[in-house]
Design a protein around this nucleic acid. Structure first.
Lengths: 179, 179
DNA sequence: TTATACATGTAAAGTGTTACATGATTGG
DNA sequence: CCAATCATGTAACACTTTACATGTATAA
């Protein structure tokens, strides 16, 4: 049920259509909880029935009507309830780690590791650009900005450690004979 | 389809029953790909039909018969094929990061962060105990052991960075007024 | 003329979680 | 006597991914 809460959090920041939310999930909040537009539309419908969000339709010319969703008091109450539920452990569930554990072809895993490292570097650059742009002075943050910044910090840590791990793998495998 | 491969990797290390695999998934390989016994039995059945594994039944007295599964040549070929498929980005999908981003109750998120930190510390201790016990001399590793050790290193990095992130959150939130 | 942005969805297939079902043996 | 371990599964539900479906406006 966590996509529900991710959408609610996003709507707390600003009301939005399903389309807008889908774009946000391709960027900011989707860093921590990816979701497609198909999923988002479905959950919005369910949450509207539950009374957690409400929508107003804006007619448009030349393109489909736009439904703007806003969080309701009941939705905010749900967020507050959710805040008190312990998160519990998050599993790794890493395709790459399984592949690494069982590798038999050194070149194949090296190729994969190099590509993975490049992905981490690229995403780290995105995160750091966001940090510089939106949170240039973290010590001045409070309220909504503080949580968003700390979440972004988590993304930065994740990428940094991913790079370290890749480097460790490359060092271990490049310096040895074939397997 | 990655549970399939996680099971195949595990069977490469040693043939096993569904029950044995479930225990392995509660410990070693499940660190990177958690799975319940229900899921494992289902996938074993599917993989046997596909010819990737084969089973021999061992009758037992006083308890149900035991089916021992072993990987076949076709199963190994599938692993080799899979090794050449690029892994692609792994999404974070973190409940906690979403909660942090949207937090409104400072005490609630502090409680959650402290519990999370304790989980990381506990898991890190497990990983480090495993490393000391099974890979006391990493430089001497080759073949199967090397991949398993590098995967474990990934787990260690994950927990270490998780602790750092929690500490950053605690520092940022404990030193400030309420929100 | 081709791709991208805008804007909303349904349907099917795959994957994962939780609940249910059975039953003997062993250790505290 | 109660809990844990051994040993296998089915069924229902929840969630995610991928494919399908439609149509205009705008910029390269």
């Amino acid at each position: 049920m966590a996509l529900d809460h991710a959408i609610l959090v996003s709507l707390t920041e600003r009301a939005a259509s399903g389309y807008d939310l889908a774009r946000r999930f391709d960027a900011s909040i989707g860093y921590f909880w990816p979701a497609s537009h198909q999923q988002i539309y479905k959950v919005l419908g369910r949450m509207q029935e539950a009374g957690w969000v409400e929508s107003t339709v804006h007619e448009q010319h030349g393109r489909p009507d736009k439904k703007n969703y806003a969080i309701t008091a009941a939705g905010e109450a749900e967020l507050d309830r959710w805040a008190t539920v312990p998160s519990g452990r998050e599993a790794l569930r890493s395709d790459f780690a399984v592949k690494l554990r069982g590798f038999r072809d050194r070149e194949a895993i090296l190729t994969d590791t190099r590509a993975r490292r490049a992905d981490h570097v690229a995403r780290l650059a995105e995160y750091e650009a966001s940090e510089k742009r939106f949170y240039p002075d973290p010590s001045a943050l409070d309220g909504a900005g503080l949580g968003a910044w700390l979440a972004l910090r988590g993304g930065i840590h994740t990428e940094e450690r991913g790079i370290e791990w890749c480097d460790e793998i490359l060092t271990a495998l490049e310096g040895r004979g074939s397997r």
